[in-house]
Amino acid sequence: MEVRTIKVFTTVDNINLHTQVVDMSMTYGQQFGPTYLDGADVTKIKPHNSHEGKTFYVLPNDDTLRVEAFEYYHTTDPSFLGRYMSALNHTKKWKYPQVNGLTSIKWADNNCYLATALLTLQQIELKFNPPALQDAYYRARAGEAANFCALILAYCNKTVGELGDVRETMSYLFQHANLDSCKRVLNVVCKTCGQQQTTLKGVEAVMYMGTLSYEQFKKGVQIPCTCGKQATKYLVQQESPFVMMSAPPAQYELKHGTFTCASEYTGNYQCGHYKHITSKETLYCIDGALLTKSSEYKGPITDVFYKENSYTTTIK
Rank of each mutant, 00 (worst) to 15 (best):
E162P: 00
D62I: 08
G39M: 09
C227E: 04
P249F: 10
S79Y: 09
G210I: 09
T19W: 11
M26N: 14
N187G: 08
Q230T: 15
A87K: 02
L114C: 02
V12I: 10
K158A: 09
K191A: 13
I315A: 15
L186P: 03
T159M: 04
F70R: 09
T198I: 14
F148N: 07
L59V: 10
P47D: 09
T282C: 14
I223M: 09
I105S: 08
Q238K: 03
E281N: 00
F70T: 14
T116P: 03
E308T: 09
K201N: 11
D77A: 05
N147S: 12
Y73P: 07
S310Y: 12
A87G: 07
G164Q: 05
F56H: 03
K255Q: 11
L290H: 15
P224T: 15
Y269S: 13
F56W: 07
H48I: 13
N129E: 10
L37S: 12
P131H: 04
D63S: 10
D63R: 02
E144R: 08
R66T: 10
E264W: 02
I301T: 02
P131F: 01
R66D: 09
E215T: 08
L65N: 10
I45W: 14
T226G: 13
D109Q: 15
Q123I: 06
Y84R: 03
M207T: 11
Y208H: 10
K229R: 15
Y306T: 01
D63W: 11
T313F: 14
T11W: 07
N100R: 11
G101D: 04
T313V: 11
N14A: 03
K46L: 14
S246P: 02
R167M: 03
S171H: 15
S295Y: 13
S263R: 00
A140S: 06
K106M: 12
Y138D: 14
A250M: 15
M24C: 13
L186A: 05
T103F: 09
F9M: 12
S25F: 15
Y311F: 15
L235G: 00
R184V: 09
C225I: 00
F174I: 00
A87W: 02
N187W: 04
Y137Q: 06
G299A: 08
T226Y: 10
V160P: 12
N111G: 05
L235K: 03
Q251G: 00
Y284K: 00
L65S: 12
N89M: 15
D38H: 11
T282V: 13
F9R: 13
N111Q: 05
R66F: 12
Q31D: 05
H18C: 07
A262W: 00
R141L: 12
Y172L: 13
A69G: 08
Q222A: 10
T302S: 07
G161L: 00
D180G: 09
Q122D: 05
Y252K: 02
E162Q: 12
A289C: 03
T55R: 11
T258W: 00
F305I: 14
N14M: 14
E281T: 03
I105A: 01
M24K: 11
L65Q: 11
G82S: 13
L290Q: 14
N49L: 13
V3G: 13
E296R: 09
I152L: 07
Q197R: 11
Y72C: 10
H90S: 11
Y265E: 03
D77I: 05
L163H: 09
K46F: 12
V99L: 15
E204K: 14
P224W: 10
F305L: 00
Y73I: 09
E296F: 13
K219G: 07
H90F: 11
Y234W: 07
F148K: 02
A136G: 08
I315C: 13
I277Y: 02
N309M: 08
H256L: 15
K44A: 09
M24T: 13
Y138F: 14
K219R: 15
Y28D: 09
E144S: 11
R83H: 06
Y36P: 00
Y284H: 06
C182M: 03
N100T: 13
D180L: 03
T226E: 13
L200I: 10
G143P: 05
S279E: 02
K201Y: 13
D41A: 13
M85I: 11
P78E: 12
V22P: 10
Y36H: 10
E68Y: 06
T313H: 14
H18Y: 06
L291W: 14
Y269R: 14
W107L: 04
S104L: 03
L212G: 02
Q237P: 02
C112K: 01
C261N: 04
E71P: 08
F174V: 04
G33C: 04
Y138T: 13
P241H: 06
L88P: 08
T232Q: 07
E144Q: 11
A140N: 08
K275E: 05
I45Q: 14
T76N: 13
V221Q: 05
Y297P: 03
A115D: 03
M207L: 04
R4C: 15
C156H: 03
K44N: 12
L153R: 04
F174C: 06
N61K: 12
A205R: 05
E264M: 04
D63N: 11
Q31L: 12
F128K: 04
T19Q: 04
T64Y: 12
T211C: 15
V12N: 11
F128T: 04
F174Y: 07
E125W: 01
K106Y: 12
C112P: 02
K307W: 04
M245K: 01
K92F: 12
G82V: 15
N100Q: 15
P131A: 04
Q270G: 02
K92E: 06
T211P: 01
C285P: 07
S86W: 15
Q230L: 15
G161W: 07
G82C: 14
N110R: 02
Q30V: 11
S50P: 12
Y84L: 04
Y137T: 03
P249R: 05
S104H: 01
T313E: 08
Q251R: 10
I15N: 14
A154C: 08
H256T: 13
E162Y: 06
P60M: 09
Q122R: 07
T260I: 15
E162K: 06
S310P: 07
N147D: 15
K92P: 03
S104P: 04
C193Q: 02
R83Y: 03
T232L: 12
E125L: 05
N147P: 11
I286W: 07
K44E: 14
T312W: 08
E68T: 09
K183W: 15
S79N: 10
N110V: 06
V42E: 02
Q270R: 11
V189G: 04
P248Y: 08
P130E: 00
A247M: 08
M244A: 02
V188M: 08
G39Q: 09
E264G: 04
T11I: 15
G210F: 00
I15S: 11
D41T: 11
G101A: 04
V160W: 04
G101T: 05
Q230N: 12
L163R: 14
S240M: 03
D38T: 10
E52G: 11
L102P: 04
G194R: 05
G143R: 03
E125K: 07
P97C: 12
A262E: 02
K46Y: 10
A154K: 02
I223W: 15
T35F: 15
C182L: 04
A150Y: 05
D77N: 08
C271W: 11
T266Y: 08
Y172P: 05
Q270F: 10
H176L: 13
L186Q: 09
Y214R: 04
L254H: 03
P97N: 07
E71I: 11
G53M: 13
Q270S: 12
G143F: 02
R184S: 14
Y311A: 05
F80M: 02
N178G: 01
H273S: 01
A247D: 07
L291R: 01
T120D: 04
K307I: 11
K298W: 10
I6V: 15
T11E: 08
L81I: 15
F70V: 10
K44C: 15
K233P: 01
L17M: 15
L65F: 10
N129Y: 04
Q175T: 08
I6C: 13
Q237T: 11
F148M: 13
Q238F: 02
A132R: 10
H74V: 02
V22D: 01
T116D: 09
S181R: 13
S213C: 05
Y28H: 08
K106Q: 15
P249S: 00
T19K: 15
D13A: 07
L290A: 13
H51L: 04
S171N: 12
S279L: 04
G39A: 14
A115T: 08
E296Y: 15
V166C: 03
P97M: 07
T5S: 11
K158E: 03
G143I: 03
M85Y: 11
Q222M: 11
D287I: 11
C182A: 09
Y252E: 00
V206N: 00
N61T: 13
P47M: 05
N89Q: 05
Q197L: 09
A250I: 11
C271I: 11
D109Y: 04
K191S: 15
Y306K: 13
K183D: 02
T232I: 14
A136P: 04
K158P: 01
S104I: 09
A250K: 11
H176I: 05
